[in-house]
């Protein structure tokens, strides 16, 4: 065998084996624990079958967390995509290449910040008494504005931070995608006095539809990682209005009850849901 035939094996087999061990051992373990009644406090545990799963179906907080996670996905994905397309096109139309590059640099900053940092930066900006964002409201009305402890606004306030991190980042990607298009059709349309919106609706949109759909999918996957923001900014509160699935699983497993097995069963359901849904969508979009 020559080296060209052996290379794929020597390069792939060890890596894939390591990945499989690192991924499947915990997953198998999670499934295994989810059929037990293990807690953080007692070392003894026994198998109890599907009891955890049955309990989940009558757990109102679990249903709430499902609903909050669903809302979170919808809010963050749509707002990010709208902001990204809007800002990307705006940069493409109004800025010269040099200013564009500077703008891209600025717009990349939020996504590079640790989620923990972004969460703290904004939770202080949203502070009802001392926050900089709530200052204009206080100055005008003389009353404090409490966005993070109001059940109607809390989820949006947290989602705003997610938008702040991802919307600008995706705007840069949309700009790069626009720049990578062949310039001739756009110039031809401009020579024919096509309006800007017509150019984007009839020329760039059809060419960029596929990458934008992939981008939305990537955002949907990344939006599953809501925990950091929620944990720092609201801990799932007020009440349970911002309690997403990972936040609820964490608080069941660690904060309140230490019910590792119960949290595991939730994690298993999350895993099955996301893997099945995203694999299905991804394969459909990509073919």
């Amino acid at each position: 065998m020559n080296s060209r035939q052996t290379l794929p094996y020597t390069f792939l087999v060890p890596t894939i084996l390591v990945l499989m061990v690192l991924a499947f051992v915990p997953l198998g373990y999670a499934i295994n624990i989810s059929f037990q009644d293990r807690t953080l406090i007692s070392p003894n545990s026994s198998y109890i079958g599907f009891e955890n799963y049955i309990d989940l179906f009558s757990d109102r907080r679990f249903k709430n967390a499902l609903w909050v996670s669903f809302k979170w996905e919808i809010i963050t994905v749509t707002s990010t995509m709208i902001a990204a397309v809007g800002l990307g096109v705006l940069m493409f139309e109004t800025l010269k290449p040099r200013t564009r590059n500077l703008m891209c640099l600025v717009f990349l900053i939020p996504v590079l910040l640790p989620r923990v940092s972004a969460a703290f930066v904004w939770s202080f900006a949203f502070h009802p008494l001392y926050g900089i964002v709530t200052y204009p409201y206080r100055a005008i009305t003389g009353k404090p504005l409490d966005l993070l402890t109001n059940p109607d606004t809390a989820l949006f306030a947290v989602a705003f931070v997610d938008l702040w991190q991802w919307g600008f980042f995706f705007a840069v990607i949309v700009l790069k995608l626009l720049e990578s298009l062949p310039p001739q059709p756009l110039e031809a349309a401009r020579l024919d006095y096509a309006k800007t919106w017509q150019i984007h609706a009839f020329i760039t949109w059809p060419m960029l539809k596929a990458p934008l759909v992939s981008l939305a999918l990537v955002k949907a996957i990344e939006s599953l990682r809501s925990f950091d923001l929620v944990y720092i900014m609201t801990r799932g509160g007020p009440g349970i209005t911002t309690e997403t699935l990972d936040m609820y699983a964490f608080s069941q497993g660690f904060i309140e009850a230490g019910k590792i097995s119960y949290a595991s069963s939730m994690a298993v359901i999350m895993m099955v849901l996301t893997v099945v849904i995203f694999t299905f969508i991804w394969k459909r979009v990509r073919t």
């Binding site: 373990y29 999670a30 293990r38 699983a249 949290a263």
Partner: peptide, 23 residues
């Protein structure tokens, strides 16, 4: 393989972290 690698990103971190803690 490429899809398998991508699908690892689909896994919720909680689902990995809870069992790993026990392990």
């Amino acid at each position: 393989i490429q899809f398998f690698v991508l699908s690892l990103r689909f896994l919720p971190p909680v689902a990995v972290a809870i069992p790993l803690m026990v392990i």
